[in-house]
Every structure is written in structure tokens, then in C-alpha cells.
Design a protein around this nucleic acid. Structure first.
Lengths: 203, 203
DNA sequence: GACGTTTTGTTCTCCCGTTCACAAACTCCT
DNA sequence: AGGAGTTTGTGAACGGGAGAACAAAACGTC
């Protein structure tokens, strides 16, 4: 988030910023921002603030955005399409090296300049491109199988869009994004607003 | 999450479950699950467990899933397409009543059985369908404008997929989903794994 | 009907993230 | 050069969520 906020400031021509400004741009408290940044080192100057470009590079280096991360996407339905075409990935150092789908009818398609390939090609693709990050955009029933195959072929980080709890061995990271749960949380707060107006905020 | 886990259990024919089982299905600790459920009331029976169907209805009622929530989606690019076609919304009580886009070239399109309409129709659509939840899937630069128009027309909950911090008045809830930040978090952990193998897990 | 077993509901404790508040450090102005 | 004004970095206080542990309650068995 800080990285993105800094990029925004840089695009506006700002060369220096205080913790207050950056915190406002990122939507957090300034004390938290300073403490977070202090974990990376002392990249600010007291009385002045932070150099936007310098801090930006330091954060990018720390979180690994300076590297090029090959990524495979499995499940080229609606969501897989959107992810394959999402420009935000490439601009942040992620390179989609393959799109896989179990359905042979999709294998003729070309999405975002990439041919959709068979799921059986997973192992060879992971090995060839040294892929460590996989994205699962399949239906829920297929997700665990896909995860197992990914782990077996060497993937150690998984971004899961399927509404299922994946079980993976230690050392493998999983992050889950559940679109309809986000809406449900909003609906819950809406309902509370209707009952007791003007009392709650999203936590 | 509990609701989804319960639905899964119900589909498997389970009629009763313990907190341990449900916690495992939802991927959480059983003590946490019991504490969470106790906030809704005492819907379990000691020595037996929870009745799956009964608990499912109680949770659904509490979080407002029994209602029908009209939703508008603004920004029908790749992600907007995917969201409009996402079946998980409808099955959870969300009904997409309109797709809006500022680009007139998209207004001829029909997506998911709905005609893409002009963003200028926002106010009338919100008023007509009593919409309180809006989804923003536009580029970052347009997101704040869209949010302002939504709020002005009566929307009080926003799900934001644009990589921007939205500022909205009190009483309006915003939830943000940032796809590339999720990947960045995974990449960060990957980098740490490469430096110090076998030490960290996603938090 | 009493007792052992199982499982919930709740209390207590611990731990971590967030925020406040302030000293240290830097700049600018006189 | 010195002091006033800013702003960072960090120690201390606060709050809340998460897990362990236990009492209360329901069921089955004898």
C-alpha cells in the first residue's frame, strides 16, 4: 500500500513527503506508517520527511517487487480471463507465463496473448519457468486437486479465488480472496445500519 | 465462512456437527468458532453439537443473506465482466440490477443478460431499485468520482476493486480488494523463503 | 434416577498490532 | 552561531482478538 501511495505521489511530481502526507495517501495512521517503515531501516530525515524515490526503491527491494515473478493461472473462466488481462500484475513485476484449464474446449482459446493449455502441462511449465506462485481461479470442487498438483510440482505460494479452504503442507503459503464474502460483509453492515442507524463502521 | 462451511456440510448430508468439525471445515480454531457463534445466541446443544440446517438459517438471518440485495457494478472492463458473470453473487442473495460504464462504446454490449448502460443513469437506477451496495471496477483514476456519485445518489456500501484509497463521508462503508497486493504479499514471503528457508508462514 | 461422557458457552490469560506522546535530529531564519 | 520550528524514530500505554481451560448442560447407560 505504501509503495502504491508513493508511486502516486511520484506521478504527481512530489519529491519529498512527510509521514503525515504518505499516511493520508495510504489511508493509515502516521504513527503506524513510521513504525512500519522503521522496520526496514531509517530512510527518512527528521525535520524533512522521506525522499519519495529513495523510499520507493527501498520498499520495492524489501518486498521483492524488483524481481520478476513468473505466475501460472489455473482455471480460465470469467475470473481467469479477467486476471490474465489484468494489467496491474505485469506492472508490478508479475509475469503470467501460462494459462491452464482442465476443459479441452478452452484449449483453442487465446487469452491475453497466451494460448490456454492443458492442466497436464502444469509440471513441465513450472519446471521450465521456475514458477513458485500459482493462482487458482477454478470452481470450488477442483481447487484442492489443483493445489495438490501445484504443490507437487514445486509451487510454494498460492493465491486462491475458489471459495474453499485449501489444505497444504507446511512451507506453502496460501492467500484466499473470496469476492462474495466481501459483499456479505457489506450487506451485514447495511442490515445493521437499517436497524440502528449511524453507529457502525467497517472494521 | 461458517455459512459456507455449513452449506458444504449440508450438501454432504450431514445434519449435526460439533464445533471441532465445523471449525476444521472453516479453517479456524474451535474455541474461536464457539465464541463467534455465541455472539449470535445459544444455537448449539451441549453434548451433541449444532444442527446444521438450524445454525445455517440463524447465521444467514443474522448477516442478512436471507434478504435480496440489489447491486450496481460500475466499470465493465475485464474485471467488471467477471463480476457480472460471477454466479456466487446471485446464489448468496445479491442481484446485479445494472452494469454501468462511462465509455459509450460499451453501451451496445450485453453482459450476463444485462445491457451495459451509461454511468449517467446511476441516480435513476439507484432510486428505482433502492440500491444500497455499489461495486467499483473502474481504473484507479475514475474510482473517487464514481464513489462520490454513488454516495450522492444514496449508496451506503462500496466494494472497491480499484487500487485507490477512497474517501467517503461517515456512515458509508468501503471495503477494498486489491488483487496485485495479494500477489505482492505472496512474493514477499517467497523472497523470505529464498533467504531463510523454512521459517515463515503467511500471517 | 444416578453417573460417566461428550460438547457447548464462557472466563481468563496472553500476545500482538495500533496509537499516543516525546526525545532526538535536522533545517531555516535571524 | 544559536534558537525556533518540524519531523522522524521509538518507548509506553491501550485495546482487542485468539487460544487454553473449565464449569454447565445434555445424552446415554445401567
Amino acid at each position: 500500500m505504501y509503495l502504491r501511495a508513493l508511486t502516486g505521489l511520484a506521478d504527481d511530481g512530489t519529491t519529498t513527503c512527510s509521514s503525515e502526507e504518505l499516511a493520508a495517501a495510504a489511508g493509515v495512521n502516521s504513527a503506524k506508517l513510521r513504525k512500519d517503515l522503521s522496520h526496514l531501516g531509517s530512510y527518512g530525515t527528521r525535520g524533512v520527511g522521506y525522499d519519495v524515490e529513495y523510499l520507493r526503491y527501498q520498499i520495492a527491494r524489501e518486498i521483492g517487487v524488483t524481481q520478476d515473478w513468473p505466475v501460472v493461472i489455473v482455471g480460465i473462466g470469467n475470473l481467469g480471463h479477467a486476471l490474465a488481462n489484468y494489467s496491474g500484475f505485469r506492472s508490478r513485476g508479475f509475469r503470467v507465463v501460462a494459462l491452464l484449464d482442465a476443459d479441452p474446449r478452452r484449449h483453442t482459446e487465446v487469452v491475453a496473448g497466451l494460448e490456454v493449455r492443458s492442466f497436464d502441462d502444469l509440471e513441465s511449465i513450472v519446471a521450465e519457468h521456475d514458477v513458485s506462485i500459482g493462482v487458482i481461479a477454478t470452481p470450488a470442487v477442483a481447487a484442492q486437486d489443483v493445489a495438490d498438483r501445484m504443490v507437487a510440482s514445486g509451487v510454494t505460494s498460492i493465491l486462491n479465488f475458489a471459495p474453499t479452504v485449501l489444505s497444504v503442507p507446511d512451507g506453502v503459503d496460501v492467500r484466499k480472496v473470496d469476492l462474495s464474502i466481501e459483499l456479505q460483509i457489506l450487506a451485514y453492515h447495511e442490515q445493521r445500519k437499517a436497524v440502528a442507524p449511524g453507529s457502525e463502521v467497517v472494521s
